[in-house]
Design a protein around this nucleic acid. Structure first.
Length: 287
DNA sequence: AACATTAGCAACCGCTCTCGA
DNA sequence: TTCGAGAGCGGTTGCTAATGT
């Protein structure tokens, strides 16, 4: 035998509240208060609702001292902090915020804030991994650029390379702000074709967001990326991703459809026999 | 334009807690 | 001390609007 229901479910209305019902409940509570008994309230107020439903409607929606939506950054921080220490004690968390209900806080967490926090922690974890990788291997000076290339970026030797911090390229003008943040060594993305593609298309790669995409892979050695078509001014850059070994010739497609071959410049610090990866950035405008 | 999917949120369900008889 | 009614709470559902295909 289970617990007795709080009301006769067959004789109560369920679902969304109408404006008339809201008005009836609001008027009754303004005149009489709850009287300490929500169960008896609906009958007195002339509502065909369960007492629990009335209580919920009042506490979560009709109460004059509550606000909905528009959570501020400060409220986000409070919720996150309290959630970390208390868990899903929504009523306690809501009590620390001005004019918020537990239901509102709970819904906000489940629909928005949780995702926001997860994305932030994933980004932080990736950052930590990158940092750890950088600390693990000593930073090696970038190789000298070959004549036809503005720069060579062997990620393997310089995983923290950030073109933003190398104003030698394009003097940091608005049209040439290219940032490459390689994924952590050992991850699936590291040096992968997909990553190169991402780098060429990512909004991190400059004003205009790239749009280049990638050319063919030749011999599994060399990846040529098409120029960043949408960069401004156009034809400023060629990007060539590469993956090769010292002494191994590679062929690759140029963005214009022609092909080239030869020994990729692996830089003075390349390690014999060890695969290396990177991006060439070729400045057409500055050659 | 039509349909499918997703996001947001109000409301419900059922369990636990509180308190008075 | 026990019991039961009502309140409180957190998890879940289901509806609707927005967005994507």
């Amino acid at each position: 035998m289970g617990r007795a229901p709080c009301c006769d479910k067959t004789n109560v209305k369920r679902g969304p509240w109408s404006p008339e019902e809201d008005a009836a409940l609001r008027n009754y509570l303004h005149r009489h208060g709850t009287g300490g008994n929500w169960i008896a309230l609906p009958q007195k107020a002339g509502l065909k609702r369960c007492g629990k439903s009335c209580r919920l409607r009042w506490l979560n929606y009709l109460r004059p001292d509550i606000k909905h939506g528009g959570f501020t950054e400060e409220e986000d921080n409070i919720i996150c902090t309290l959630y970390r220490s208390l868990g899903s004690r929504w009523s306690v968390i809501a009590s620390k915020l001005q004019c918020r209900t537990d239901n509102d806080v709970k819904n906000y967490w489940n629909t928005k804030l949780k995702k926001k926090v997860m994305m932030a922690s994933a980004a932080a974890a990736a950052g930590q991994a990158n940092l750890a990788a950088q600390q693990q291997q000593p930073r090696v000076p970038l190789p000298l650029p070959p004549t036809s290339l503005t720069y060579v970026v062997p990620m393997e030797f310089n995983p923290g390379f950030n073109i933003d911090q190398n104003p030698i390229i394009f003097n940091g003008s608005a049209n040439s702000r290219y940032v490459i943040s390689p994924p952590a060594p050992g991850t699936a993305q590291e040096n992968s074709y997909e990553y190169m593609s991402w780098a060429a298309n990512s909004s991190n790669c400059g004003s205009g967001g790239g749009g280049g995409g990638e050319d063919d892979i030749h011999g599994g050695l060399m990846m040529g990326m098409s120029q960043l078509e949408e960069s401004s001014p156009p034809d400023l850059l060629n990007w060539y991703g590469f993956q090769s070994r010292i002494g191994e010739a590679a062929s690759y497609n140029n963005y214009d459809g022609s092909s080239s071959s030869g020994l990729p410049n692996m830089g003075a610090n390349a390690i014999e026999g060890k695969p290396s990866h990177g991006l060439y950035l070729e400045s057409l405008a500055y050659l």
